[in-house]
Design a protein around this nucleic acid. Structure first.
Length: 305
RNA sequence: GGUACCAUCGCCAAGCGGUAAGGCCAAGGUCUGCAAAACCUUCAUUCCCCGGUUCAAAUCCGGGUGGUACCU
């Protein structure tokens, strides 16, 4: 039986967008000889820079960052891909006797990793998925959902049938019986920090950051991507991108666009906080003062290492 | 100063005598292959104020206050 001591140590830093994770992570990496893996469903994409608040090379201070710019805009990326990718990277970093530090805002990805999600068969049944997708288009979500209820009532009971993507996946699972819903034991000895701050303060930071993004040329960035790839890309649905697309399509004016980006980012931050509350073993770090937050984390890490 | 119209949740707004629609915002939540996504729940014991009519008033009447438009 593997004991906690044998497991690789992995540090996680989560938190709402704009709470100041990246900067703290880089400083921790410098102090503890670490390498960073980003957990961010948008920053994996090349050319989605300003709107995703991607860390700039000079801000990395020489610390190696993985999980950024690993996909082209027209490629798909999912929790599954993240878990596969990150497991490999963690192994590599540990083999080099360095500390893996996983930093970002996509908490589901982290949850999947630490709770040992088993996604079942890795093969995607593309043809079957297409077929279900067509059924949804033709007959509606409810029709397909009723079908699912007949095949696998248990799967259906927990499903939000209005969400087409989940419905397709559920049908795939039902049809091929590949899902494993059991949670495996975590393969890492991890420490998980959540960087938090006063809600009003966080909202103010978010609003200011959006203004900064605009000043840095967010609209130009989106326009270029739009021209090259169109608006149907997976990352084009991210906050800061879909609103600019709506603006470029003349559906909303510029002021409305800015207001919506801010509002959606605030809503997102709130959802992140909600998700964090559902995770176990979270050590909350109150980031009122950057240096104090850093010291608090160091104390915790020293105990843990 | 005169005349007309208006005053309902943080915002928009329905209601036209029978016991406060809806949308937005906000808050809370769900989550095993799009998660910066998608979805769910909650959110006015009260309608500017005072008085009156009525079994019953946000709805009718009188007065006040505030706003808007036009006239002088």
């Amino acid at each position: 039986m593997e004991t906690k001591k044998d497991k690789p140590k992995v540090l996680f830093i989560l938190g709402a967008t704009g709470a100041g994770k990246s900067d703290l992570a880089v400083n921790l990496a410098l102090k503890y000889n670490g390498e960073i893996i980003s957990v961010d469903s948008v920053q994996v994409y090349r050319h989605f820079n300003i709107g995703s608040a991607k860390i700039r090379p000079e801000e990395m201070k020489g610390v190696i960052h993985y999980g950024i710019d690993i996909k082209d805009p027209n490629e798909e990326f999912s929790v599954y891909d993240f878990v596969e990718y990150t497991k490999i990277k963690i192994d590599e970093i540990v083999k080099r006797a360095k500390l893996p530090i996983i930093v970002g805002g996509t908490a589901l990805y982290v949850k999947a990793l630490i709770e040992g999600y088993n996604f079942g068969n890795t093969d995607k049944h593309e043809d079957y998925r297409k077929q279900v997708e067509n059924d949804i288009k033709e007959f509606g979500n409810e029709f397909v959902y009723n079908k699912l209820k007949q095949i696998n009532p248990k799967l259906a009971s927990n499903l939000d049938y209005k969400n087409s993507v989940r419905l397709i996946r559920a049908m795939e699972i039902a049809e091929f019986g590949e899902a494993q819903t059991k949670t495996q034991e975590c393969e890492y000895d991890f420490k998980l920090f959540a960087i938090i701050m006063d809600r009003q303060k966080l909202y103010t930071k978010i609003n200011n950051r959006v203004d900064k993004m605009l000043a840095e040329g967010l609209i130009k960035e989106v326009e270029a991507l739009y021209k090259k790839y169109g608006s149907q890309l997976q990352p084009m649905r991210a906050i800061g991108y879909k609103e600019v697309v709506a603006y470029l399509d003349n559906q909303i004016d510029k002021d409305k666009m800015i207001e919506l980006i801010k509002q959606h980012t605030r809503n997102y931050a709130k959802r992140q906080l909600t998700f964090l509350r559902g995770l176990n073993n979270v050590v909350y770090i109150y980031n009122e003062d950057k240096n104090k937050a850093f010291d608090d984390m160091c104390k915790e890490i020293d105990k843990w290492l």
